[in-house]
């Protein structure tokens, strides 16, 4: 089972990202579980969501304390207490940022992969919503699930122009990261 934690701010589509990732697992014939850890629900407030992906039915419902991967939708959250807690050794951190991953990683003393998801989404979707671009990059890095399963998951949630634009967005985002770089980390834990 692979456990993933998504950090973002209210309004960035954190819960949707978690639901999409779990649905992508389902579209690929696996089991997915996703749920938010709501604080007070308001725009801009830090929000956490959890995702589990497994070949077997998922029974545990506790929060994800020791994730294999972190997806951070707002770079500033890297400096919020608790955000990096519990990340497994060798686990990956994917951050929405226009700065190079090495520069961000140097600040927090960890290896970080960066994707300028907000400007990318602004250009293609017309809105700086980073979630789907980050998911695509995450899938490319880990090769955990095929991108076309994400497209099918998106098709269950969006239609028409929004779906078309998101499909273009994820294709471009997936090409912006080194494919398979985190493959080992995603198989070690045995999904």
């Amino acid at each position: 089972m692979i456990e993933i934690r998504i950090h973002g701010r209210g309004g960035q589509g954190n819960v949707v990202a978690a639901y999409l990732l779990a649905t992508t697992a389902f579209e690929d014939g696996r089991y997915g579980q996703a749920f938010p850890n709501f604080g007070a629900e308001r725009r801009g407030a830090p929000v956490t969501a959890f995702v589990r992906i497994s070949g077997q039915p998922i029974r545990r419902r506790c929060q994800v304390i020791e994730p294999a991967f972190l997806i951070i939708q707002d770079e500033a959250l890297l400096h919020v207490e608790g955000v990096l807690d519990g990340l497994q050794p060798g686990g990956g951190i994917l951050v929405n940022s226009s700065r190079p991953g090495e520069e961000i990683g140097g600040l927090i003393g960890r290896e970080v992969m960066a994707l300028p998801a907000s400007p990318l989404a602004s250009r293609i979707l017309g809105r700086p919503v980073p979630n789907t671009a980050l998911l695509a990059a995450f899938l490319a890095l880990t090769e955990l699930l095929p991108i076309d399963a994400l497209v099918r998951a998106l098709a269950g949630r969006f239609r028409g122009k929004v779906l078309d634009a998101n499909s273009r967005l994820i294709e471009e985002a997936a090409g912006m990261v080194p494919v398979g770089q985190w493959k080992e980390a995603s198989s070690e834990t045995g999904a």
Binding site: V15, A18, Y19, A22, G32, Q33, A34, F38, R61
Partner: peptide, 10 residues
């Protein structure tokens, strides 16, 4: 609440 109502699963 939340643990089931807000959890997406198969």
């Amino acid at each position: 609440g939340f643990t089931l109502t807000h959890t997406l699963e198969v």
